[in-house]
């Protein structure tokens, strides 16, 4: 729309700026809080301009035990745990969904559609619904307090399987036939043709799943008791309740800030592929 109405432009900009401020203000406050010392953070009113203790706080948060209570793991360890969990969930989900979608679309086996619907039905069973039996199974397998316990129960994904199925269905049959004439076996076709053709969709899904994995709260809380396995998202809540003292807002906010960085980084780094993967239909 090409129009030249200054009032309209002004109003629309005001609305947009208001929206940006609304979204950005909490993040700004988090950042500001992370730059002051603990004493300043207990005084009212809360500061709105950055202080001078950023590096100090960063160091204390990353390498100290975060809070003065000694039993908590340092935050760098939590970041590492979160990163490992998010990556394992994202990669695991993508690999498993790609393979199941491949089986469902390209192979004829008895009850093929039955299996598809069975996978689809699990959409109705997120972790929260099946939390007790899943915990039981994981505990019996001895996977408590391990990366496997953190990730394996979350890896099966009906959404991703369904999405890859739709992607594969748009790839013309001639592609498969051409590959067969070229002498490519099923796995070769999968790796050489299907995966590269689904590249943008894989990237889009990776972004979504990485954030899904990173933001896991309930399941890690349940499965880990060892401080070395704490993830950063659950630790923020624990910090608030920590050891009968007033919350150390500067450290907590620094932790929150650190927890935000990896997802933001993933989104920014993969933005182009992400948009392509969700909008492009042409193969």
């Amino acid at each position: 729309m090409v129009e030249n109405r200054p009032i309209l432009t002004l109003v629309s900009h005001l609305v947009l700026i208001f929206g940006v401020v609304l979204v950005a203000l909490p993040i700004w406050i988090t950042f500001v809080a992370a730059t002051h010392d603990a004493v300043r953070m207990t005084q009212a009113p809360i500061p709105l301009l950055p202080g001078t203790h950023f590096l100090e706080n960063l160091k204390a948060t990353l390498f100290g035990s975060g809070l003065s209570s000694a039993e908590a793991a340092p935050v760098w360890r939590m970041l590492l745990n979160s990163l490992a969990m998010a990556l394992m969930i994202a990669f695991g989900k993508i690999v498993i969904s790609l393979l199941s979608a491949f089986a469902i679309v390209y192979f004829k086996f008895p009850f093929r559609m039955g299996f598809f619907w069975l996978i689809f039905i699990t959409l109705m069973l997120p972790v929260e619904v099946r939390i007790l039996p899943t915990f039981e199974v994981v505990a019996n397998l001895g996977m408590l307090n391990s990366y496997w316990g953190l990730t394996v129960p979350l890896i099966a994904s009906a959404t991703a399987t369904f999405m890859f199925r739709q992607v594969f269905l748009t790839i013309p049959d001639e592609m498969l036939e051409s590959a067969r004439i070229d002498g490519a076996g099923p796995m070769r076709f999968f790796i050489d043709i299907l995966v590269p053709l689904s590249r943008t969709n894989i990237a889009a899904l990776f972004v979504i799943l990485f954030i899904y994995g990173w933001n896991q709260y309930l399941w890690p809380l349940l499965i880990t008791t060892d401080n070395d396995m704490t993830t950063i998202v659950m630790s923020i809540k624990q910090m608030l309740e920590a050891a009968e003292q007033s919350p150390q807002w500067n450290i907590i906010m620094m932790t929150a800030l650190l927890a935000m960085i990896p997802p933001v980084f993933v989104v920014i780094a993969m933005q182009k592929l992400f948009v392509q993967g969700l909008t492009e239909t042409d193969k």
């Binding site: 001639e174 592609m175 036939e177 051409s178 590959a179 067969r180 004439i181």
Partner: peptide, 16 residues
Amino acid sequence: PADRDIAMVFQNYALY
């Protein structure tokens, strides 16, 4: 198909 020693040209080319 790969063992029949044939080559095929498809209607929509089917290029990768």
